[in-house]
Amino acid sequence: MPMAASGPGAERYAAIVGPLGADVQVVGTEIGDAATRKLLRSVFVKGLAAAVTESLAAARAAGLEDQTRAEIATELEAATAATVTRLEEGSRRHALRRSHEMEAAVEMLDGLDVPSRVSAASRDWLRDLIE
């Protein structure tokens, strides 16, 4: 498992544990640089996991888990750097319409008795993007 290290001892640490099989990437000279990178990645990865889990719970309740699981997998497999740009720019450009869509999603999840934490947060975030 690759790891990141930073701070004044990062180079030395990498030199010591590297020959033992550790995959260490030195990412900065300041203490905390590696932790910052890890936490920024966590915002994405844990947020994505929460969205996938909520979507699958709703799909299961609606009897559409297999289709939804396949659709999520297809989206993730096709993702590129252009996908990141499309998600960011599209969210800003279409915030009003997407906030209405997420309001409908929250209502649907409520009707399925599935907690809509991620969906509600997405709706609220999109509302904040409306200009």
Rank of each mutant, 00 (worst) to 15 (best):
Met3Leu: 13
Met3His: 11
Ala4Thr: 13
Ala4Phe: 06
Ala5Asn: 06
Ala5Tyr: 05
Ser6Asp: 08
Pro8Cys: 01
Glu11Leu: 14
Arg12Lys: 12
Tyr13Asn: 05
Tyr13Glu: 07
Ala14Tyr: 00
Ile16His: 07
Val17Tyr: 02
Val17Leu: 05
Gly18Met: 03
Pro19Trp: 00
Gly21Phe: 03
Ala22Thr: 05
Ala22Trp: 06
Gln25Cys: 05
Val26His: 08
Thr29Pro: 11
Thr29Lys: 13
Glu30Ala: 11
Gly32Phe: 01
Gly32Leu: 02
Gly32Lys: 08
Asp33Lys: 12
Asp33Thr: 15
Asp33His: 15
Ala35Ser: 13
Ala35Cys: 09
Ala35Arg: 09
Thr36Arg: 14
Arg37Gln: 14
Arg37Asn: 11
Leu39Asp: 03
Arg41Asp: 11
Arg41Leu: 10
Arg41Gln: 10
Ser42Trp: 10
Ser42Arg: 14
Val43Asp: 13
Phe44Ser: 09
Val45Met: 15
Val45Leu: 15
Val45Asn: 15
Gly47Glu: 13
Gly47Leu: 10
Ala49Leu: 06
Ala51Val: 09
Ala51Glu: 11
Val52His: 07
Thr53Trp: 12
Thr53Gly: 13
Ala57Pro: 08
Ala57Met: 08
Ala57Arg: 12
Ala59Tyr: 02
Arg60Trp: 00
Arg60Tyr: 01
Arg60Ile: 00
Ala61Phe: 03
Ala61Met: 02
Ala62Gln: 00
Ala62Gly: 02
Leu64Pro: 05
Glu65Ala: 12
Glu65His: 13
Glu65Phe: 08
Asp66Ile: 03
Asp66Arg: 12
Asp66Val: 10
Arg69Gly: 05
Arg69Glu: 08
Arg69Met: 05
Ala70His: 07
Glu71Tyr: 03
Glu71Pro: 03
Glu71Met: 11
Ile72Ser: 01
Ala73Gln: 12
Thr74Arg: 15
Thr74Asn: 12
Thr74Gln: 14
Glu75Lys: 10
Glu75Ala: 12
Leu76Asp: 09
Glu77Trp: 08
Glu77Ile: 07
Ala78His: 12
Ala78Phe: 00
Ala78Trp: 04
Ala78Thr: 11
Ala81Ser: 15
Thr85Leu: 03
Thr85His: 01
Arg86Glu: 11
Leu87Ile: 03
Leu87Arg: 11
Glu88Phe: 15
Glu89Ile: 07
Gly90Asn: 10
Ser91Cys: 11
His94Gln: 11
Arg97Gln: 12
Arg97Trp: 02
Ser99Lys: 00
Met102Gln: 09
Glu103Gln: 09
Ala105Met: 12
Val106Ser: 04
Val106Trp: 00
Val106Gly: 03
Val106Cys: 06
Glu107Gln: 15
Met108Ala: 08
Met108Glu: 08
Asp110Ile: 05
Gly111Thr: 07
Gly111Lys: 04
Asp113Glu: 09
Val114Thr: 08
Pro115His: 02
Ser116His: 13
Arg117Tyr: 08
Val118Cys: 02
Ser119His: 02
Ala120Tyr: 06
Ser122Asp: 10
Leu126Ala: 04
Arg127Asp: 06
Leu129His: 10
Ile130Pro: 08
